[in-house]
Amino acid sequence: MKKTFFTLFLSISVFSGFAFQWPVSDPVLVTSFGESRFGDFSKGIELQSGSEDVYPIDQGEVVFYRSGETGGEIPSPLGNFAVIQHERGIYSIYAHLDKVYVPDYKFTEKNRLGTIGSTGLSTGKSLFLILLDGEFEQYINPLLSLPPMLDLKKPRIGPVYFIAENKQGNQKNEAKGDLTLKSGVYSIQVEIKDFNDNAGNYSPTAPFSISLYLNGENRKNIKFESLKLETGNMVLQNSGESTYDTLYSSPWVYKIGNFDLSPGDTRIELAVKDFEGNETSRILKITVVE
């Protein structure tokens, strides 16, 4: 556990120290890291742009690519793509490209790599950017190493649900104001959507972090920083071993965790931040009875 934490810390630190460039001009974030995408964690970010051209985020070397010319024996849900290897075993992957330009394998930030497209399993014309730390074999949130994106909009906290499992099945209680519940173990689930200034209100994304406080005590933190394969499952690191199935109830509803609520007054605070630090919180007062 300590080793895993140290590895994650080291890896995040390395990435935070980098200053990569945006692969497209005037990027608009339409899918964030860790968001629910096709029934799984999004291992990268999806960007739209008014321009067509895609450039590497840093200098490096194309080690693998696929285009209409190269073909391939297995299908490619990522469509046409290119993989650039950078220093220290870091890979950047540019997917759903229309054209892939690989006249030479060595690339600087100024060499055009391709054009934005919608090839493969893509919902629209966009670039899907994935950052893989090959040394630690984990996916890193690319926003950690890209320039800041202007965004003043706060995440929105939607309905909060308290779901109790009993003999009759799951009993779902929505906290619309003060709520009275019987004591017991509840799965707290909350709908959260973040909106980016550039993307407007039509394309929500996942937040960057979610924290839950129970009677003032920090009981759960979820951070969309990195994903790593552990015992056959992709796990959101530093977030209480969250897998896709344990975190997502539906694409925008997050299962924060299971909490034992004892009789008495209970104060629950949810604090949600987006990547630019915009924060929203909500306090719920629960009366728990026998």
Partner: peptide, 20 residues
């Protein structure tokens, strides 16, 4: 399930949305 299918011989496979 989301992904792209492919068959090899008589065996049938599905590659997920990001190829992992």
């Amino acid at each position: 399930d989301a992904g792209y299918p492919f068959f090899i011989g008589s065996r049938r496979f599905l590659l997920n949305s990001d190829g992992t």
